[in-house]
């Protein structure tokens, strides 16, 4: 341990990376927190790797070292839910810089909190939906979903008139729509008031925000997929491979808990487009729907559209018997 410390310092001197951005020194100067021990434990490996790295590539030495520092800090950061405001800004700064270093373009990651007196709710008009699937395309683009596995949060189920049995429905139809004798129904994460997925997560990597959105800290998720087994609505998706989004298609307006880029081995899902909804905008699916079948708004506002729908239309929710209290209602004209 003592050895590696010395090494770290001497390296810092030789490579002239002892500037203000020296992550190694930052680690040492930082007040030791509860993860301090772990950080120091791994430091030996890290400094060795850094030394090898800087000796091998003289030209990009400083850059790659700064990158390694940031990756290092990122690895040992805490759960977003428990971070202080400063810590949140710190990690966001790192993520933005890392993206810039890696891709040469800038992203903007937000950490905007929930607004006061807002609880989001969603209503889906099954008389209106025609099965065009414009919502899915908008969602995929907005939320930077993996293109290689064609991940999609939303599914549109084509039901035959006379029943609403999902087992007999088709969620991957490709013919002229609306097909006669059929109706359409979209499913996605319902942002349950009583979400079983949150209950089961062993590391509290997923939780319900004050405005009712169920979110995931992608960097805290360990990928056990227990939440996936616990979700009765097929609302969650797993990154089985390294997600791929072409650089020019990346939506650069991001939120830490929303559409920022994910890595392989973590869960993700619909966040009611938290990056949009917290700035007053509608989720991408609502905006993209050409038929107005999707309604989004504040449940706590007695004058909101969503409240009007709940109070004036005949609404229902799926699998209400499970007591999950989805904040996603269906209704008919």
């Amino acid at each position: 341990m003592e050895n590696s410390k010395n090494q770290a310092h001497s390296c810092g001197g030789q490579c002239s990376c002892g500037s203000k951005k020296d992550g190694v020194n930052q680690v040492f100067e930082k007040k030791s927190d509860r993860r301090g021990m772990l950080k120091q434990l791994g430091l030996g490996f890290f400094t060795a790797a850094a030394a090898v790295n800087s000796s091998c590539s003289v030209t990009s030495g400083e850059d790659s070292k700064a990158k390694a520092d940031m990756n290092w800090e990122e690895y040992f950061k805490g759960n977003y839910k428990l971070m202080s405001k400063e810590e949140r800004l710190e990690t966001i700064g790192r993520l933005e810089r890392l993206y810039e270093v890696n891709n040469g373009t800038k992203i903007n990651v937000s950490s905007k909190d929930a607004h006061q007196d807002v609880l989001y709710g969603y209503a889906f008009n099954i008389s209106k939906c025609q099965g065009y699937m414009d919502c899915i395309n908008a969602c995929v683009q907005e939320n930077n979903q993996d293109r290689s596995s064609e991940m999609q949060y939303i599914r549109i189920h084509e039901h035959q008139n006379g029943q609403m049995n999902f087992e007999n429905a088709d969620d991957n139809f490709f013919h002229e729509v609306p097909a006669s004798g059929h109706f359409y129904m979209g499913t996605q994460c319902y942002h349950c008031e009583n979400p079983p997925c949150v209950e089961v997560c062993p590391v509290e990597a997923t939780w319900k925000e004050k405005d009712g959105i169920v979110v995931i800290d992608y960097d805290w998720c360990i990928g056990c997929r227990y939440c996936m087994a616990a979700c009765p609505y097929d609302g969650r998706r797993f990154n089985w491979n390294e997600p791929q989004v072409p650089e020019q298609e990346v939506n650069k307006d991001q939120h830490y808990l929303g559409n920022r880029l994910r890595k392989k081995g973590v869960m993700e899902k619909c966040t009611f487009c938290v990056q949009r909804s917290r700035s007053g905008k509608n989720p991408a699916c609502v905006e993209a729907c050409p038929t107005g079948a999707r309604i989004f708004g504040n449940l706590l506002d007695p004058e909101s559209e969503i409240r009007w729908v709940l109070e004036n239309k005949k609404v229902f929710r799926l699998k209400e018997d499970l007591g999950t209290e989805p904040k996603f209602w269906y209704f008919m004209d």
Binding site: R34, R35, M37, L38, Y75, G78, N79, K81, L82, E199, V200, C201, P202, V203, E204, A205, D219, W220, C221, I222, G223, C224, R225, Y226, F238, N239, K263, K264, G265, V266, M267
Partner: peptide, 28 residues
């Protein structure tokens, strides 16, 4: 359990005190 994890490198999040341990809620 470890080989089933998507992010085994982040398994330390499971260690009580150092990580966040969702006990007693999570059966895992």
């Amino acid at each position: 359990v470890v080989v089933d994890l998507g992010g085994p490198a982040r398994a330390w999040h499971l260690i009580p005190v150092i990580g966040t341990f969702n006990w007693p809620n999570s059966m895992l």
